[in-house]
Design a protein around this nucleic acid. Structure first.
Lengths: 230, 230
DNA sequence: ATAGCTAGTGATCAAGCGATAAACAACAGC
DNA sequence: GCTGTTGTTTATCGCTTGATCACTAGCTAT
């Protein structure tokens, strides 16, 4: 029953891919297609891009919406089998290095035109999967980052970060995230050196976190009274 | 024959607005409509929402695209007659206060569901007006912020900020911006106190800027060698 | 080869789209 | 009142959309 990689025959006009490969090819190209055109893109245009006729899509997917759902699934779930958790919580390494490495790896995955555009299209649609993703970032990533920051700042451990702490992590995270948006969606010029951008953002975040939540102000001249309570 | 609800001169059913008011009403409601539905929204649905018939739209706008262009214009240009320039560069006040006040005012304008959604829809379309806006933020806002930061840090003045400086300002700005995205597009829970979020972001930015570009590290334990050159 | 299954195609449908033109209704000036 | 002008609707056109169905072409097992 293994039929994959069998379609030798004519080099120019080979058709009849294995059903599974065909399906994967459809989803992959549909992802690129919808990333560019938005989900309003026509199935006929997608089919043309695939080199097949439009009704064929309906042999593999019951409806356009079902195809779109599979696109979501691959885009959102595919990249997350990595071991980022352990990376962030490995206290044998300096926190700054951990954050830099984590965001280097994280942005390597999501900083693509395809990913970012699908992300925003689905976000504007108010889709559940987008909400799920945002929630996951907060719980799986930012909550841990705050915990590590508190540890480094010598603050007592908490089961959950306070709202202002989490918000500060969000602002930090979003600042980095938006670098990709500017580069791949707005196609606006950005600092070429991504690692430097991350390094500086991490420095600012760590310095700011300590200053705001641990009160280790060096100057004290210009700061306003810290408003920490949540 | 049957036309809905007897359009005689009943008091409740006044029509015939002044042409100019009609037009403005159309653009205003179209903005809300397209903000929700995206620019793929049907003109018939928009007309229904306006309480008029669809062909009437074409008396006021030559085409759907022309209507959309007017929507862009009002959304992008309307809010910018304020005196934010002077606010940012008024060196008689502490920089922290200026930044907090500026971002308070700025976010008061753009942190609406309507504005943010139109912004992203046009951004995904790759529209010129969106590029123009991003460029304006960089030149009119962030360039000045960097200049003020350099001044406060005791660094010599420059005609234009370096790429890393500008990038750091972008990351800062984007972090604040994304607070609105999370709140009004993702409708995700955020820190209720916007002013506090801004204050903390400003603190982190100012501390980070000095640390990275002026080298005023207080601890020196965990920092990596600063990579400043652009 | 050939029978049988299935990937793939051509033709087509019903609904919805943006847009147009002609008929109608409201108002202004006389 | 009447009449010309203009805002508004009814009816409709041409096109595109997602989806379906009958049919053809290609592969596998016998």
């Amino acid at each position: 029953m293994n039929r994959k990689a069998a379609p030798k025959r004519s080099a120019a006009k080979q058709r009849r891919l294995s059903p599974d490969d065909r399906r994967k090819e459809f989803v992959a190209k549909a992802t690129e297609f919808f990333a560019e055109e938005g989900f309003g893109g026509a199935t006929r245009d997608l089919a043309r891009r695939l080199g097949v006729t439009q009704p064929l899509l309906y042999r593999y997917f019951p409806s356009k919406d079902d195809l779109i759902k599979e696109v979501y699934r691959t885009v959102y779930l595919e990249p997350f089998d990595t071991a980022w958790d352990k990376l962030l919580t490995d206290r044998s390494r300096p926190l700054r290095a951990r954050l830099c490495e984590f965001y280097g790896a994280y942005t390597n995955v999501i900083f693509t035109r395809k990913w970012l555009r699908i992300y925003f299209y689905s976000g504007l649609k108010g889709l559940d999967i987008n909400r799920w993703y945002v929630g996951m970032v907060g719980e799986k990533i930012l909550t841990r980052i705050v915990r590590e920051c508190r540890h480094q700042a010598g603050l007592p451990p908490q089961s959950r970060p306070s709202a202002p702490e989490l918000e500060m992590a969000w602002v930090f995270h979003s600042g980095i995230f938006y670098y990709g948006v500017r580069k791949y969606i707005y196609e606006s010029p950005v600092l070429e050196d991504k690692e430097q951008m991350i390094g500086n953002a991490v420095d600012a975040f760590l310095a700011g976190f300590e200053q705001v939540f641990a009160g280790s102000a060096a100057d004290g001249a210009q700061r306003a009274p810290v408003k920490v309570m949540g």
